[in-house]
Amino acid sequence: MKSQTRPNSAYLFLIPALAFVLVAELIPVIYTTYFSFTEWNFITPPKWVGFSNYLNVFTTPVLINSLKNTALWVIGTLIFAVAFPLFIASLINLVPVKSIFKAIFIIPSTFSPTVAGIFWRRVLVSRQGALMPLFESMGITLQPLLPNPDINTYILIGVWIWQYFGINLLLFLVGLDTIPRDPIEAAVIDGANYRQVFTHVTFPLLRPIVLLVVANAIINSIRMFDIPWVMIEGGPGRASETLAISLYRESFLLFRMGLGSSIAVVISIFALLASYRYLAALGKEKVAL
C-alpha cells in the first residue's frame, strides 16, 4: 500500500455519521455517566456523591422491584416472543394456508407499542372494556385487572408479546424458507422424526437468525418503557415499574437526576452484558452477525 502524503479524504465520508453519533449518543453517554455519580435536582448544581446512587439502585425496595420486573420482562420476552414464535413458525410451515396465519400474526407488529397499549387498555378496563362483558356472559365477574399489582406485570408482558410476536415469527419463517432442503431431506431419509430434524438440523441452520432475534429481544425488553407507561404508568404506585420507568420517574418526576442516571447506566451495563456475544461476533471483520 502506498503511503499517503495528502490528508486522506476518505475520512470526509465518515465524518458526518461520526459527528451525529458523537453528539447524539456518545457524548450524552459520558454526561449521563457523570451525572450518575452526582446528586442533582435541576435547581442546584450537581454535587459529587461517588457510588451512593448505585448503592441505592440495588437497595431501595421500589428499585429492587423494578429490577425484578425487568427480569420478568426479559424472561417473558425470550420465552414467549422468541422461543414460542420459533415453535409457531415451524407449525405454520406445516399447514397449507400459511399466508393467512402470517398476516394475522404480523398485523399487531405494524402497530407501535403506544398504540398496542391504547388498544389493550380499552380491552381490559372494567368500565366499557371489551373483555369484561364476555366473562360476565359466562357468569364470571373479574376484578379490575390492570390495577392489580400481583398480576399486572404479566398482563403488560402479554400485550408486548402480542405486539412483538409477529415480527419475530416473520423472521423465523424467512429463515426457514432460506434453509437449504438437502440436509433436512437427508435426515428424513435416515429416519429422523420431526422433533429430531428440528433440533439437530433446522435449528442449527437457523442459529444466525435466532441469535439476532435474541439480542434484539433482550435489548428491547430491558429498556421497556412504552407499554407499562401508556397502560398504567408503572402503577399502581410503582408496582409495575420497569427499570426504564423508574429511571424516568426518578429523573423527571422526583428530580433525582443522579439516581435516574445511575439507573440508565445500570440498564446499559445489563444490555451490553446480555448482547455481548452479538458484539463479540461483530468484532470479527466481515462477519455480519
Partner: peptide
C-alpha cells in the same frame, strides 16, 4: 447498544 434513556437528559 445503549438504551435510549442514556441520551435523554444531555440531549
Amino acid at each position: 447498544m445503549f438504551p435510549f434513556q442514556m441520551f435523554l437528559i444531555p440531549l
